[in-house]
Design a protein around this nucleic acid. Sequence first.
DNA 1: TTTAGGG
DNA 2: CCCTAAA
Length: 655
Amino acid sequence: MVLQRRLDYGFSGYRMPEVPRASRSARGRGPIRKKLDANQIHAFEILASVAGKLLQESKDPLPTNDSFGKDPHFKFGGITKSKQQDKGRSLKEEPCELGSCDEETFLYVHGLQERRKSYTLNGVSHSQENFSYEINSVSKSLDSERINFGKGLGAVDSRNSCGSHSNKVVNDSPLSEDSIAEKPQGLLKRKQVTEPSQDTSIKEERTEFLGSSEDVMEMEERPHELVSSRHDVKTPFSGDCKNHGPFLGHCANIRVVNRDDDKNTMTREFEHPPEDGDKKITNLAAPGHDGKIRQANCNWRTCYAHQRSQKIYPFKKRKFFNWRPLATSDRGCNCEGIFNTPDKILKGDNCCAAVRSSSTTGQQVPPKSNDCNVKLSIKSFKVPELFIEVPTTATVGSLKRTVMEAVTSILGDGLHVGILVQGKKVRDDNKTLLQTGISQDDKRHNLGFILEPKRAKLTYPPCSEDPSLVSGRSQELTRHSASLVSQPGTSDVSMSPPVLSLGGCIERDCKEVPSLASTSTDKTPPTSQALVAVPPISMKALAVVPFHRKSGHQEYVQRRIRRPFSVPEVEALVQAVEKLGTGRWRDVKLRAFESTKHRTYVDLKDKWKTLVHTARISPQQRRGEPVPQELLDRVLAAHAYWSQRHAKQQVKAAV
DNA sequence: TTTAGGG
DNA sequence: CCCTAAA
């Protein structure tokens, strides 16, 4: 028979496709904000949840964070130290620190409407969740974050810029070896207790995982610290999680309260972030951290941000799934504090261990990815680590599916997973992992996962519907992420060099948003902004996190992409309204936007509303593409006219 | 389905 | 843009 050993892989993160820029101040000075769709946010939630659970699995106390409580920035509103203390096993809360973030590069992630605020990933948000999914991009650093997917304990990526210090740091880090060594036991223990069966299917794992209720639920999450740009780090991983700056309130404290076995639903409630959240963030973002950016040393456990209050939180919207965002800083997750020395890691032993059946041997300690600093550009964000387990006999296709399930369930169906082994894209889904070389212990076999747009074309909002302005639908995807799109089945060329100049491209893109006209596909570097940076990856062992997928499809309803009205559109709208009047949006739609399917009458109505508002405010206060004053004047005139007319009609009707 | 408005 | 109550 074929050996049924399993490989545990850990994701240090995914690099996500860029998200359309949401907005920035009129003068371009403001923070660049990005909005993530609900499902994307959910990804964080789920991944964070997974991480959190894993974290919980560990009974080993995490290194204490001395800075906790000391750091002025660190202030979790409701975090009760005493509470933590009460629980011996509970993890200490640590502030998540966002390292040096270029203020300008802060990304704000928004969820939907009301929740929008709460889902603001940006630590700046005052939302209650205030989770630490802060995406902060340091455009300065060209190093792209990498996705490590490795087997073996503690991977060290020598190529990684962080790698150099990471090794060293690792040793010093409290979280290093000991921690790692211990963890497995704890996991094992738990496993034995909870999982009698040796046969562990992913599903079972998941179940078990979920099954570990109480303790898990009560665990406090600990925000992890984050860090900063790898470049500047002088003392990376200063060895402890102590020095991390407070990430402040971004890390939500969550506690799982309710568990729904059937649905694997966990609801959580977040605490309200400190009022001064903004300030804190600002501080973090403030200059001065340059060169001294603290390295975040977060191991995946740490990443598991604070969890706290538990409570069944009825979600208003069904769109929101079961999982609430955990307070986790994706960034933090990426910066792992636990590392093993390379030699150690790469040893066959570890590898072997890694492949042991998790069910019988217990889970391995999740490997830490040496993905030090995550630098996110405006167009991408990193998701917390995700651990999965698959038998070596699994096919590449199944591996993809497994990963996809985890990711898709979170992100929605817009993406599919691509797998790269040593930088090469594996296209044959029928190959087994062994055949592909993924199962080999050789460290050289790097495995990378990439998220690619499923659809041939991503729908990026064209600047204008106006034919004259639209260079073609094909451009949709091109804007910032042409390279992102490796169409299924086609180009992989770009993927070969896994990651390339990601950095450079990103930086450039961040700074300048190419106009549509200038961004034809041809100009876009094929490889660059690839979705994923597939850095050299070292394999390491990890704990498996069974990922569960709900049968089916989540009800993620993606928020429509923002499509600012172009001047021609505004013109058309104004003209139609002048003629038809307000209140007849359907007719306006038919008349002026008949062929523009993405402009609904509601959109037109909304646009009119904003136009009226825009026309009333001073030019200085206006944002976005300036609308000719002439049009605005017409807006006001039409608005006044029709308002008056409606009023009169009402009077008549009344009489 | 449309409107109208608040979020 | 989203979400919805009303119409």
